[in-house]
């Protein structure tokens, strides 16, 4: 009897949980007087509506103290495309004298459904002394680079920048095929042979 009551409690609780938090696009989720509209919602007049299918999540607002920020979260069904200012991971594809062509793989720690093309221009690699820099001393095809989107770019690709201590190559293999270890901001060492290779290295994050 005791066991049964626990099972009933769990199923009822699950049912309430599911039915109360899953919203469909267009469903009314709150009023602007109580909530602040976050990701996955839109504001029309005084009311907040969901724009994607998912679960409601509320948290304390940073911009408006005393208000709750309401968001619609869906970890499974989620599309994201690179926005200006987002941190992306990309793979260098081809080097040119003035720029490097890359393929953007993830944005804001979310995998993209399809890779987007990106471009790192020579003047965006580092903040200072970009004239005396050679692009092959910074990247090699196949390197995984952490970078920031600075503009939506031309009709072809997003413009990316690695100007920053925490931006640059995060993973690369040497000419011998072994992984490289970061030893300085502009040098990496082959883990197998100990040879030095030049890269624009991202500072390893503390975590």
């Amino acid at each position: 009897m005791y066991f049964l009551s626990i099972v009933t409690f769990i199923t009822v609780h699950n049912f309430l949980f599911m039915s109360s938090v899953c919203v469909v696009p267009g469903q009314h989720v709150g009023e602007i007087s109580i909530y602040e509209a976050g990701a996955g919602t839109r504001l029309q007049g005084q009311s907040i509506f969901a724009t994607r299918f998912g679960e409601i999540q509320t948290s304390n607002s940073i911009l408006n103290p005393g208000k709750l920020k309401i968001e619609v979260i869906n970890r499974k069904l989620f599309t994201q495309i690179p926005q200006i200012g987002s941190i992306v991971y990309c793979r260098a594809e081809k080097l040119f004298p003035g720029f490097a062509r890359t393929v953007i793989l993830t944005t804001d720690e979310t995998f993209l459904p399809q890779p987007f093309p990106g471009m790192i221009r020579k003047q965006d690699i580092r903040p200072l002394n970009t004239d005396e820099l050679e692009i092959q001393d910074c990247f090699r095809p196949g390197d995984i680079i952490r970078s920031r989107v600075i503009s939506l770019g031309d009709s072809h690709s997003f413009y990316l920048s690695t100007a920053g201590v925490d931006l640059g190559v995060v993973y690369a293999t040497s000419l011998d095929g072994a992984p490289l270890e970061a030893i300085a901001w502009n040098e990496m060492r082959c883990s197998a042979t100990g040879k030095l290779e030049k890269r624009k290295v991202a500072k390893p994050s503390s975590s």
């Binding site: 696009p25 996955g40 994607r52 299918f53 869906n74 069904l77």
Partner: peptide, 11 residues
């Protein structure tokens, strides 16, 4: 479209 996670005004 909903199951692809595309933002929509409503169903």
């Amino acid at each position: 479209l909903v199951s692809a996670g595309i933002p929509m005004k409503s169903l």
